[in-house]
């Protein structure tokens, strides 16, 4: 497991910047109609996703969501193959058959993003059952949102994981809105984490824009889960800066609210933390940020020169 040291924080800062620049590039593509379909961007949620993944062991597993780009970048990913997938290319993670909502890389424990809200809950239970049964020592982190915690699958999965003591961290990225509906109109509680009580498991609420707090809490609960104590529910409060998907006028929230959250920029927070605590020089971080931006440009270049999948591939891989 990564320790909270300079090397880890630098890597975290790098992945958060990759996530930010990736999303900004995708947004730019969409505005120009250069990407097919839709996408759900996670700008503003980088600390919540990246720091959580980095507190895991490299061979631990995650299930990701429709708003999953920061999550899978956090777990460790080849940006070229990811960008190629969004552009529908044969060199993409899913050979152009999955797109934005289905980035998966089983080789690094990323069991895939999910287009169905709450679709990952029960898959995470199954993945955790495999770890428990085979005694691998690995755990599963299940990403989902506040909206997904209102799905029936949430209840079934947390209950099963609890009675079977499955090694899962149920990790709720609460960005305050299920598409357009505010949390206050979709549940009668302030903190999703209190739902843990119903399953007899620990529940924690953390500041999801504070990468240090996210990292430390996930590291702590990962150790608890890994020891065979059963699942934990962690709620990470955060905010998406952009709309739900590409076609969202955001009439349900004010510009002032969005601006107030931009002031809590998770990337700036980590930057200032590292500088203030003498863990990095400003110049070093600024340079790293530039490199990250270039990495995304390189990924675009890779994707652009990649081929489309051959039409003959359309019937391949339906069955193993």
């Amino acid at each position: 497991m990564a320790e909270m040291n300079k090397e880890t924080l630098i890597e975290m800062y790098k992945r958060m910047n990759h996530a930010r620049f990736f999303e900004e590039k995708v947004s730019w593509f969409f505005a120009r109609g250069m990407i097919h379909g839709t996408t759900h961007l996670s700008v503003g949620q980088e600390a919540s996703a990246v720091a959580a993944c980095m507190a895991l062991n490299d061979d631990d597993l995650i299930t990701s969501t429709h708003r999953g780009h920061s999550q899978v970048i956090g777990k460790g990913i080849d940006l070229n193959k990811m960008m190629a997938e969004l552009l529908g290319k044969i060199t993409g993670y899913c050979k152009g058959k999955g797109g934005s909502m289905h980035i998966a890389d089983l080789s690094v424990g990323n069991l895939g993003a999910n287009g169905v809200v709450g679709g990952g809950h029960s898959l995470a239970c199954g993945a955790a059952l495999t770890q428990q049964y085979q005694d691998t020592g690995k755990i599963v982190l299940c990403f989902f949102g506040d909206g997904a915690s209102n799905e029936g699958s949430f209840h079934e999965a947390l209950n099963l994981a609890s009675v079977w003591k499955l090694p899962v961290i149920f990790y709720c990225e609460n960005n305050l809105y299920g598409m357009s509906v505010p949390q206050s109109a979709s549940m009668n509680i302030k903190d999703v984490a209190v739902r843990a009580d119903s399953y007899g498991i620990p529940g924690h609420t953390i500041d999801g824009n504070n990468a240090i707090e996210v990292f430390n809490k996930i590291k702590e609960v990962a150790a608890y889960v890994r020891e065979g104590n059963g699942p934990v529910l962690v709620e990470s409060k955060t905010y998406r800066w952009l709309g739900h998907s590409k076609s969202d006028a955001q009439a349900y929230r004010t510009k002032e609210e969005v601006e107030s959250w931009k002031e809590k920029d998770p990337i700036n927070y980590l930057y200032n933390y590292m500088v203030t605590n003498d863990m990095a020089e400003k110049e070093e971080l600024d340079e790293l940020k530039k490199t990250c931006k270039q990495d995304i440009e390189d990924a675009v270049a890779f994707a652009n020169v990649s081929d489309n999948p051959p039409l003959s591939s359309v019937t391949e891989d339906v069955y193993a």
């Binding site: 898959l123 199954g126 993945a127």
Partner: peptide, 26 residues
């Protein structure tokens, strides 16, 4: 009980747990 397991009355997670276990090697 490790190999023949009673579940709660929860069909959604029974099926999803099977899928998640299958994709990870069981």
């Amino acid at each position: 009980p490790e190999r023949v397991k009673d579940t709660p009355i929860s069909e959604a997670v029974i099926a999803g747990c099977a899928a998640g276990a299958a994709v990870t090697g069981l």
